[in-house]
Simulated assay, not measured.
Amino acid sequence: MKQILLTNDDGFDAIGLKALIEALSPIARLIIVAPAKNKSACGHSLTLDRPLKLDKIDDDFYKIDDGTPTDCIFISLNNLFKEEYKPDLVISGINIGANMGEDITYSGTAAGAMEAVLQGIPAVAISQVCRDKCNDIKNGWDFALAKETIAKIAKKILDGNFPLEERKFLNINIPPIQPKDCNGIKITKAGYREYGNDTHRHLNPRGEEFYWIGLHPLIWKESQNKDCDFEAIKANYISISPIKLDMTSYDDIKNLENWIN
């Protein structure tokens, strides 16, 4: 039976992870390893300053106390699986909130997929875009479109049809609509995110300053061909972007050689 390793940066008890399990349990054996608490926006971070404990919750279900999604994938691949029985696929999600544009670099969801492809395992990151600071999710969103999409994509990959070369993964974003309202799937590039500075200064009872970093609205620079992930979601399409870990700016190599000399 095919095996899929799951993680989720929202934590082991995240509603998006539960939806992912529901979508995929009919098609494969699932092994779940997720952080014990929310690790959103932790990026591709690996814990090196303390030991990590792998706690068993149930059969094939584990949490790592204060671990990141990267920790979860790294530790599980090297300890829960024998070399000849590595998982056929890693899926990170379903994340609550978008992971588009440069937010991919912040994303713990994307990081789980990054670590998998570094270890030679095909991987997918999937995120549910939401409205109104995700109040729709909190009020009982059913993840119907996300579940339908990830089951379809997972089946294609498990059939031996992963479309990318090594060290590349699929980044999927799902619009906040029901399946009947979806216009289909668009293959997109990562968009150009525009950022604000949403920080809130507070004082504690001792008069010491502290800051909360807020949520930035999804604002982006329009692409010339309307072919980025943000624009696909706005038009009620599922966005699938191929992401590679090689961040070299090849166009600038010659310019930099001329500049340094």
Results as ranks from 00 to 15, higher is better:
K86M: 10
G214A: 01
D227M: 00
N261D: 13
N258H: 05
K53N: 07
F169P: 09
K221L: 13
T248Y: 00
N78W: 03
C42M: 04
V33S: 01
D10Y: 10
Q178L: 15
K226S: 13
I240M: 07
I219Y: 03
T105K: 07
R29C: 12
G93D: 02
K37F: 08
S223R: 00
L256V: 10
N38L: 12
R193K: 11
V129I: 07
L245R: 11
P217T: 02
L46G: 03
I4A: 05
R167F: 11
L5A: 00
I126E: 10
D103Q: 14
I172D: 02
P35G: 05
K53F: 02
S107Y: 13
F61L: 12
N161S: 15
N171T: 07
L170F: 08
S239D: 05
Y85I: 00
Y62L: 06
I32H: 00
G214N: 09
K152L: 15
D181L: 02
I126G: 06
M114H: 08
R131I: 13
K186E: 15
N78F: 02
A19M: 06
N197V: 14
H44T: 10
A98G: 00
K244A: 05
T7H: 10
T109D: 03
E84Y: 02
K254G: 03
N255Y: 08
I73T: 02
A146L: 09
N258C: 01
K180N: 11
L256H: 09
P242S: 14
V129G: 00
P26D: 09
E84Q: 11
C130W: 07
T188P: 01
S92G: 01
A151G: 13
I238F: 02
G97E: 05
S239C: 01
Q178N: 04
N171F: 05
L215V: 10
I137N: 08
F162P: 12
G43D: 02
E222G: 11
D88E: 14
I27H: 08
G97A: 04
E22C: 04
I73K: 00
E83K: 15
N78E: 01
L170C: 07
A125W: 11
F162R: 07
L245M: 10
G207C: 10
H216G: 12
D136N: 14
N78I: 00
A144P: 06
E208G: 01
N255C: 01
N78L: 01
I75F: 07
N161V: 15
W259N: 10
E165W: 04
N255L: 13
E165Y: 10
C182I: 06
I57E: 04
P242K: 04
K156M: 13
